[in-house]
């Protein structure tokens, strides 16, 4: 068949992303990002350090609402059953891959399939897959908690970003691009989640205690950035994040071409759209 050799220029997206869904997704992403990076940009009036200590607890309640609203909006027009089944199966594979890596020095195996699937099936599919993969894996391992919505949103961004990469690139260039994306995403994911955990684990600076690495509510952007930079460098960038980037690179290099071909064949057979 000549179809096989022809470059795949345009795959139809399995989960439609209309202008309204795009707007909701953008708003939710802005709000979500603010809830991740708040320690760096929050400006607290002097004398109300208590309020800064409360912010993460408020966000714990807001984040699930945000994720639920976006998911409801993405499926608002109805998702056809082939895409539902595909999402379910890929989420199951991701959930099975996750414990394989956890615990072994930053070997994170979830992201490579998420990146490849997002690339093939488009940004909407990637977003939903990121959410459902992490949710399934949390249900399977009984790991549901306040951290889950944050992880879901971060990995949903990874899937969506992979779907938004330029469509024209094919062949080896495509693999190279995906490897690069995998590395960037591995570090970004680590930094974002660290930023969310940071005020919890290192503590918030208060009157009676000023730790060298904890969050400073009335500190400037640079001051907090410096503290966080040292914290994240010491605790995770060198170990976990690099391990994650390496896993992504190796998995995409070794399995990427074959997995992409398999996913595209399935997409053609299912003929979305």
């Amino acid at each position: 068949m000549t179809v096989l050799s022809a470059p795949v220029t345009r795959e139809r997206s399995a989960v439609r992303l209309g202008p309204r869904s795009a707007l909701v997704l953008t708003l939710a992403s802005v709000a979500g990002l603010a809830m991740f990076v708040w320690p760096l940009f929050a400006s607290v009036a002097p004398g109300s350090a208590q309020r800064a200590g409360e912010a993460p607890f408020v966000f714990m309640a807001v984040m699930p609402v945000l994720v639920l609203v976006v998911l409801a909006e993405l499926s608002e027009g109805g998702i056809d059953s082939k895409a539902l089944a595909m999402l379910g199966v890929l989420s199951a594979i991701n959930a099975a891959l996750r414990p394989l890596g956890a615990g072994t020095a930053g070997l994170e195996t979830v992201f490579f399939l998420l990146v490849l699937a997002g690339r093939v099936y488009g940004p909407g599919f990637g977003f939903v897959l990121g959410c459902t993969s992490l949710f399934t894996s949390a249900l399977v391992t009984a790991g549901v908690g306040p951290w889950l919505p944050f992880q879901m949103l971060a990995s949903a961004w990874i899937g969506m970003g992979a779907g938004l990469l330029p469509r024209r690139v094919t062949g080896r260039a495509e693999i190279a691009m995906l490897v690069g994306y995998g590395i960037v995403v591995a570090y970004l994911f680590g930094i974002l989640l660290n930023l969310y955990y940071w005020p919890f684990l290192a503590g918030v600076d208060v009157d009676y205690y000023a730790g060298g690495l904890s969050y400073l509510p009335d500190g400037s952007l640079l001051e907090n950035l410096h503290r966080f930079g040292v914290y994240t460098l010491l605790t995770s960038t060198a170990g976990w994040d690099t391990g994650r980037a390496l896993t992504n690179t190796i998995a995409i290099l070794v399995l990427g071409p074959a997995v992409l071909a398999t996913l595209r064949r399935a997409a053609r057979r299912a003929s979305y759209g």
Binding site: L84, A85, G88, A92, A95, T132
Partner: peptide
């Protein structure tokens, strides 16, 4: 979304 997770 619920259906997807049940399938998974």
């Amino acid at each position: 979304t619920g259906t997807v997770v049940v399938v998974a």
